[in-house]
Design a protein around this nucleic acid. Structure first.
Lengths: 364, 364
DNA sequence: CGCATTACCTAATACGCATTACCAACGGCG
DNA sequence: CGCCGTTGGTAATGCGTATTAGGTAATGCG
């Protein structure tokens, strides 16, 4: 047998002697008078009793040592060793804390945080801004799984994660990617319900004002709107949908007056980021000198924009953003656990509001 | 030389043969006909030219191989090898995403996130609620350093972290703990400036309305207020400070009228979480039938509460929350890097506003 | 032509943790 | 007393990457 040449040890440069670094399992082991392996075994004791058996006394010594040193496992090392971290990632493609405080992501995050905390997970915030490269998304692999939110989550990278079996949940409907789990709100049912409510109040001619956008959130609402008309036995021709690129300039007092003259008694607006449709609609109605629950009824398929928060509560529904965030976490944590749960669409809550009333009796 | 007994190799169980996992550096190396080390060197080529030299041809072969395999480095391994996680903790003692959207933490977090992202750090969110145990704070050690915010950060635990040399920064003045780094806003100077502004406008009798709280943020403002009076050569007796437990019930229209009758021409309110002082003050002035910049001037030592956002912009100053968050991250990242930078107080920006005008000329 | 450089690479680590093969001590049993 | 099953623990890995001490041609120099 040939004697291997003696080489100096390469590898790591010695750590700067200054600050003492976080304690390692090895130090816990030393303090407890056991081996590193034992520390690991104790700290990861499976409750199902499987695995190595450690005497109660040793167990306590190790636990005490760990506590007294303030030991916390290194997430990177754990991940590398193919273990769990109790970390969930949240990746948003804008700033996670948008400068616009009223940004609609915010309520999601509230729900996400609460549910994550309840399940013993901490959250890691990843932002697109820092990376930029093709592996910007790959940082999330440090966590046990990751939640994505935002319109512009790149397909390719996401697909890659999914293909690798990394637990991923997209917040917002996203069906085009095979195998991608997502949670979304049931805009269709909620919109249908709002229309049904108006129909019950006696409205026979109802018009939807929507923006010129093909996001699922918009088409779903229109779908529900038309379903609602249909369910009430009302006609849902193309006249019943006002699709406009710029609601504020297109939905004028003039236009509203015309439609009312034609017999329209209720208007429904979709909710968008800007709230332009609703804003245009309420403005036009007021401009036309019509009183809101009296002359004409209004409904909003969503929540009012913050700048109109002071106005009368619109009839419509609330998107359960908080609940959506929580649902996303549940789904994600199921994936992490290897289960295959699937979270159905989350229902929106109907909001009676003050802007819809009985249809006016036609003047003789 | 004794022949070591042959042992079967322990360690990892074989990976499930199903999906082929993402490529490793080793596979890139094989494809390019080089060693793994070379791949690493090429992929992490420092632009300062330091380090190993690799021929251009080899470099290209490696890059091509990496590209063709779609190689992406494993963040866990990368961080493990670098002995750094590039994670900064954020520990707040309420929910990090407060249910109250307008919560004052929020702007801090915006700054924190931006600065962290700019420096290549990701954020880990910890909440007091999640852990619960006495060693809940221990969990933050998984990050490279941690930012604390909130009034009720427990002294003992914090002390422990500091003593262990764990990088910690407290958001908000906190001098009682030796060695604790913190960043804070310069309320004293800002308040002084506001008073000086009023004095310049001719006001001679100015009264501060504050709540009954001894938080640094409150006492600093009072300090600055008194400094300001002093600097303008005005008397600052105890009459000039109205300290009330419940401003809304104590600062009435009646009270304001009295004070004005005594010669007071300007009021200053401190900013608090609730904004009660400012709210009470504006309400009382209106109730007394006084016009605001005309009969009496008002100033707010901070930003107006959101529910009054619609009103006239108050004269006062803005707490640079965003900048404070960024400063905290800078300070923290310096600590993580082993440097000893210290961040001075951050200045608040004076806001001219519309609620302060020239002092009314006394009626003859 | 012989020796010192230089240019390029590779072998051999270390990082911190989870896991598994194996080992020692002990007790029961025939 | 020798064999065997248990109990309690440890040594030796592997995970994927970064780093560094060498090693080996090729090149420069006198």
């Amino acid at each position: 047998m040939e004697q291997p040449r003696k080489r100096a040890k390469p590898g790591r440069a010695p750590a700067p002697a200054g600050r003492k670094s976080r304690p390692r399992q090895a130090e816990v082991a030393r303090l407890a008078g056991v081996s590193q392996a034992t520390v690991s075994l104790v700290l990861n004791a499976r409750r199902d009793g499987k695995g190595a058996t450690i005497s109660e006394e040793t167990r306590q010594r190790v636990l005490d040592a760990a506590r007294s040193l303030g030991y916390v496992p290194d997430p990177a090392a754990r991940r590398l060793a193919a273990a769990r971290n109790n970390l969930l990632g949240v990746f948003s493609f804008t700033s996670t804390f948008p400068t616009d405080v009223q940004h609609s992501y915010y309520p999601f995050l509230v729900g996400v945080e609460q549910e994550a905390a309840a399940r013993g997970y901490d959250l890691v915030l990843f932002t697109a801004s820092s990376g930029g490269g093709p592996d910007a998304l790959s940082r999330v692999r440090l966590a046990d799984g990751c939640l994505f939110l935002g319109r512009h989550v790149p397909r390719a990278e996401l697909k890659r994660l999914v293909a690798d079996g990394f637990p991923v949940v997209h917040l917002g409907r996203r069906e085009e990617l095979e195998g991608l789990a997502w949670v979304g709100a049931d805009y269709v049912s909620a919109s249908r319900e709002v229309v049904a409510h108006l129909a019950d109040l006696g409205h026979r001619r109802i018009v939807l004002v929507r923006e010129d956008d093909d996001a699922p959130a918009s088409t779903d609402r229109q779908q529900g709107f038309l379903d609602g008309l249909d369910g009430a036995g009302l006609a849902g021709g193309p006249d019943s949908v006002l699709r406009c690129a710029d609601p504020v300039s297109e939905v004028t007092a003039e236009r509203v007056r015309e439609l009312v003259a034609e017999g329209v008694t209720a208007f429904v607006a979709e909710e968008t980021d800007t709230g332009a449709a609703w804003q245009a609609l309420t403005g036009a109605v007021a401009g036309a000198g019509l009183s809101c629950p009296g002359d004409v009824s209004l409904a909003l398929l969503g929540s009012p924009p913050p700048e109109l928060a002071a106005g009368p509560v619109p009839t419509g529904f609330d998107v359960p953003r908080h609940e959506l965030g929580a649902a996303a976490v549940r789904l994600l944590s199921a994936q992490v656990a290897g289960e295959e749960a699937d979270e159905p669409l989350v229902a929106c809550e109907f909001r009676a509001g003050l802007t819809a009333g009985p249809a006016p009796v036609p003047e003789p």
